[in-house]
Design a binder for these strands. Structure first.
Lengths: 194, 194
DNA sequence: ACCATAGGAATGAATATTCATTCCGTTTTA
DNA sequence: TAAAACGGAATGAATATTCATTCCTATGGT
């Protein structure tokens, strides 16, 4: 155990922020090496090639996102409580890992993702699908296709966090609370409408 | 005027779909030439270089989007009616120009956009800012920062249209109506909450 | 024949990847 | 215990590939 980051960790961190910032194709391997303060060749000691690196990164982020969202999930809570839990999980993950969240969002359909990466992302989505299905069944969530519901909440959330990441917005607990409410209102059934 | 697309138009169309599909850095000039069925050199007869091409494309799309959203805007209508108008404009633009919408969304912060492109996008955003401000003032729209409100609606909308674009979803008028309602509920003030 | 337009091979710069060498900590030997 | 030998991690210059851009030839319209 070192007090300082291992070479591998430095590479991972540098690559993540560059991929998030400039995209996969806009990031060169020497750029990553520079930022990580290692030799170019060192990257190839840890990853077979650039594609293997981006896939390792992607899977790692998805796994961590999965863990955060599912940890302490209130299985027996209400649909509303579960929504809040998931939303807070997203916030927590995005704050701890500001590049990781954006990276996953912008790369989840990328052509260079291998089957394993795609599968890991699909599993994450399955969890949200199942949630949406339960919510609809209980009459709490609007009867739209689960894909659409997920797209609405994730789309809104990621765009907001993109602003935060870009420094164009500073998040406050109150603002996050309001955004959560806003997202809930977007997908929930309203009892009484004028 | 030809019955068939001009060379320039073929280049523009090919470039647009490739940039939307693979991103700027992931698209090569010969790739564009191939898809447009022109020689590589021909592209340089119409555009100074790759960067000029992407900027011309961006500005053109933003302009068309602007036109669609602002055409017949109900200046004296209610905030709700104006929202509907804008939303329908977005739908119309996205349907007529499925790549263009996604292209603008994914490239609006790109490092290779020139000042003119940035300015054209800023003007478009100003329009939405002004709309949000009016809505808040009238007590119809939630009192959040305009940036956040815009991010919520645009984020939700673009993610849904990304699904449609990818063929993972087929849009119907009823579905679009529901999504419009969903987005409105996300940003509007609700008179009575339980 | 002349000019404008188009084409695509040629060019040089940029990029991913490799590899011979250096460096450094550990083990072996005297 | 000190010196020598070793092994694997790290390096960055060298190589092979890909790319944007140029340039010269070909084509077709007038």
């Amino acid at each position: 155990m070192e007090a300082t980051l291992s070479k591998r960790d430095k590479i991972v961190e540098a690559a993540l922020s560059l991929f998030a910032e400039r995209g996969y194709d806009g990031t060169t391997v020497p750029m990553i090496a520079d930022k990580a303060e290692v030799g170019t060749g060192t990257i190839y000691r840890y990853f077979e090639n650039k594609e293997a690196l981006v896939n390792a990164l992607f899977q790692d982020c998805v796994k961590r996102f999965n863990d955060v969202v599912k940890r302490d999930f209130p299985d027996s809570g209400s649909v509303r409580e579960q929504f809040q839990h998931v939303f807070h999980g997203m916030v927590r993950f995005a704050k701890e890992n500001i590049h990781g969240f954006y990276f996953v969002d912008t790369h989840s359909n990328a052509r260079y993702l291998d089957p394993e990466s795609r599968e890991s992302f699909r599993q994450l989505m399955d969890f949200f699908h199942a949630y949406a299905a339960r919510g609809i069944q209980q009459g709490m969530i609007r009867p739209l296709q689960a894909d659409v519901l997920i797209a609405i909440v994730f789309g809104a959330f990621t765009k907001v966090f993109t602003l935060i990441r870009a420094g164009k917005l500073t998040e406050t607990p109150e603002m996050l609370r309001q955004i959560e409410e806003s997202c809930w209102d977007a997908v929930s059934v309203h009892a009484n409408k004028e």
